[in-house]
């Protein structure tokens, strides 16, 4: 499809192009503004500061762990939702999707009420000398909570799109459930799984509300890049902008990566 052409080769009306411009500009212009405030030299200086490097390292570490955990615990759940038929499936589906719609701050409060010192589960953990809030573990938990639906939704859709008869055929050929999952379901759902991974990672990168409620904003322990932006704003605008640019860069990488992966693994048309 060319820029001028619609799907059937007929040019789209000019009015439609005009109508589609405001949103694109509204999103694009502020992001561009980020890039023109700080000179490249200053950018480099700010980005190599101790605070930024610490936040970057913590962010990469926690988001990678969180994303791995999401894949680990999200895949079986997605499979159950895609292939299972059971009472309460709709309810389970809704619960899994909720973190997308509830405000992240509320998610943070909920995590505190569950895992905080006086919390439902936190109280039990306290007995073993385990305290989660305001640690790097809490950062990871907040990210898992908020980012998991993005992976689960994509993985579920990808697995649902795999023809169940292919799995049945594999079983009649002597493959057990586990082998069928790895040799049929996963390869065929791979584009969806990978884009789910990238989307979940991107969401974990941008996580702020739940993290600040549940993990706080402690440099080196719980201060991720997004939290660092807020701390920097209190003192030095340039530094805040520099961290924002860095976050923007990571987000662009994530999206391009998702697109590239989706293209790479496109299935041959049956």
């Amino acid at each position: 499809m060319t820029r001028e052409g619609g799907q059937h080769g007929e040019p789209l009306p000019r009015g439609l192009w005009l109508a589609s411009a405001p949103l694109a500009l509204f999103i694009g212009v502020p992001l561009l503004a980020l890039l023109f405030v700080v000179s490249p030299a200053d950018l480099a200086r700010h980005l190599t500061s101790r605070m930024v490097l610490g936040a970057l390292w913590l962010t990469l570490k926690t988001t990678l762990i969180a994303t791995s955990l999401v894949v680990l615990v999200g895949t079986p759940l997605a499979f159950v939702l895609a292939r299972g038929s059971f009472r309460g499936r709709e309810l389970l589906d809704t619960i899994v999707d909720l973190p997308i719609t509830i405000p992240p701050v509320v998610a943070g409060v909920a995590l505190l009420l569950a895992f905080g010192r006086r919390g439902l589960i936190g109280r039990q953990l306290e007995a073993f000398g385990i305290a989660i809030p305001f640690t790097s573990v809490a950062v990871v938990m907040a990210q898992v909570f908020i980012a998991s639906p993005f992976f689960v939704k994509a993985a579920r859709a990808g697995m649902e799109a795999v023809d169940a008869r292919l799995e049945a055929a594999a079983r009649t050929l002597g493959a057990g459930r586990w082998r069928v999952f790895w040799t049929i379901t996963v390869p065929l759902a791979r584009p969806a799984l990978l884009s789910g991974v990238v989307l979940a990672w991107a969401r974990a990168l941008s996580e702020f509300g739940a993290t600040i409620m549940f993990a706080g904003n402690l440099p080196g322990r719980t201060q991720t890049l997004t939290l660092a932006v807020m701390s920097a704003l209190e003192g030095d605008l340039e530094s805040a902008v520099a961290v924002s640019v860095l976050s923007l860069g990571l987000a662009v990488m994530a999206l391009l990566g998702a697109k590239w992966l989706a293209g790479q693994w496109r299935m041959p048309v049956a």
């Binding site: 023809d163 049945a168 055929a169 079983r171 065929l188 299935m267």
Partner: peptide, 20 residues
């Protein structure tokens, strides 16, 4: 017995070949 423990050669309607 689960399908993988039976020795059944099943040719599916539309064949269900593995597209990948």
């Amino acid at each position: 017995l689960p399908p993988e423990k039976r020795r059944v050669g099943l040719v599916f309607q539309d064949y269900a070949l593995f597209p990948h």
